[in-house]
Simulated scan of single mutants.
Amino acid sequence: MRIAVVNNFFPPRVGGSAHLAEALAEKFVERGHEVIVLTAAYRDAPAEEQVNGYRVHRLPAFKMPKLGLSIDFDITFASRPSNVRRVFRLLDEFQPDVIHQHGQFLDLSWLTGWYSRRRKVPALLSVHTRLESTLRLYAILFRLLDRFLVRPILRLYRPRFVIMDEMAEKYCAQRYGATQGEFDHIPVAVDPREITALPTFDVRDRYGLCAAPLIVSLGHVIPLRNRLALVRAMPAVLEKHPKVKVLVVGRIYYDRFLQLAQQLGVRDVFVATGPVAKGEVPSYLAEADVVAHDLQGIGCGTASLEAMAAGKATVCAVRETNFPWVELRNWDNALLVRPDDPAGLAAMLNRLLDDPDERERIAARQRDVVLGDFTLDVVTDKHLAVFDLMTAPTPAGTR
């Protein structure tokens, strides 16, 4: 099978969808399929290169300017007439059987969606991020973008949707009019071999941390993962664990949590590392007593699943039904709090820090959940099964 993988985000750019697209491309090749990757240019990465058995084409792109807004993010766009022609030329030469797109609001998905419609090539769209915001103005703006831009484009070429949790299913149904017949439940993938690699440096030595309880908060700081609940929980945590530190690992696009920490007198508890290379993440997780960053009820993301795979007690603000194919049980194989609940979060953190045995027992069961249902091999199998379904001959007399 010839598979075109499409994502504006691709390494060396870091990020969950970028690394998943890369990992799946490598797995598709490993399973004997031909793969081409279309992505946006990023810094000094080569325009074309052969990587691990597949070819990467990075199209000329421009970066969204930083306007001092809380939604500023490192996004590059590739929409220009020359790229339309180039996309069609590259795909015509490759002759894909299926197109796997990452990101419903990224313009390379739209360009290849047009190709999908014109050439009648089926497209599978992985929805990694929902256009939502806790800030009212942006929430309204995102709803308008979804209604008047994203939805019409998606309905034009009608992809199948990769749904990673129950919130994504509800979102795609409401925002894009997608039906159950267009959904495929495939989780985000985690590669335990990468995340459990041996540490390459001493985190506590690098940041001058003593042998005190350490909470690691892994992932970029954006309005939907703003760390505000974690800051508000700290006074109650400090009452029982006065030496606790919180290591925030990732780029800070939204710094309200640092301002709030200053106001509450807990600023010295928080250590912000900035962005780190993916290969360094195991070193940070190795020292974590607890991991917490998905605290606003928007889902359980890649970083949280990776922390679980590493055997670390990981707190998330999701429901027991978040993953339709997995039964989550609080204080058994999951650590679940209500969204934006500082008091509940503080109580959970204190209990976990008080009882290392319970913490390790739950962490081991969380790890079993990830290893059973979220490994890269399992996720690859599910994608390939959907590709087979999409490319199967249509029975005579049906549409």
Rank of each mutant, 00 (worst) to 15 (best):
A347G: 05
D340H: 05
M348R: 05
N350G: 13
R359D: 10
R361Q: 14
A363E: 03
V369L: 15
E360S: 12
R367F: 02
N350C: 15
V370G: 04
M348F: 05
E358F: 04
L345F: 01
A363H: 02
R365C: 04
D354C: 11
A346N: 03
P342M: 05
G344R: 01
D354S: 13
E360C: 08
G344S: 10
D354A: 14
A346C: 08
L352R: 01
P356V: 13
R359I: 14
D340Q: 14
M348T: 13
A346K: 00
P356Y: 09
D354H: 09
D355L: 11
R351G: 14
P356D: 09
R365E: 15
R361L: 10
A343P: 02
P356I: 10
D368K: 14
R365S: 06
V369R: 02
D368Q: 15
Q366D: 06
P342T: 06
G344N: 08
R351W: 03
E358C: 09
D357C: 05
M348H: 03
D341V: 10
R359H: 07
L352A: 11
M348C: 04
R361C: 06
Q366T: 07
V370W: 00
G344P: 03
N350P: 03
M348K: 08
G344F: 02
A343T: 12
P339T: 09
P356K: 12
D341R: 04
G344I: 03
A346R: 01
R351Q: 15
L349N: 00
P339N: 06
I362F: 03
D354T: 07
I362C: 07
N350M: 08
D354V: 06
G344E: 02
G344V: 07
A364E: 13
E358I: 06
P342E: 07
L352T: 05
D355K: 07
Q366V: 02
D341C: 07
R361H: 08
R359P: 11
R365L: 12
A363Q: 01
A363L: 13
D340C: 09
R351C: 09
E360N: 11
P342I: 08
D340G: 04
A363T: 04
V369Q: 07
E360A: 15
D355Y: 05
P339C: 04
R361D: 13
R365G: 03
R367P: 01
L345H: 00
M348D: 03
A343S: 10
D355A: 11
G344M: 06
L353S: 08
D357L: 13
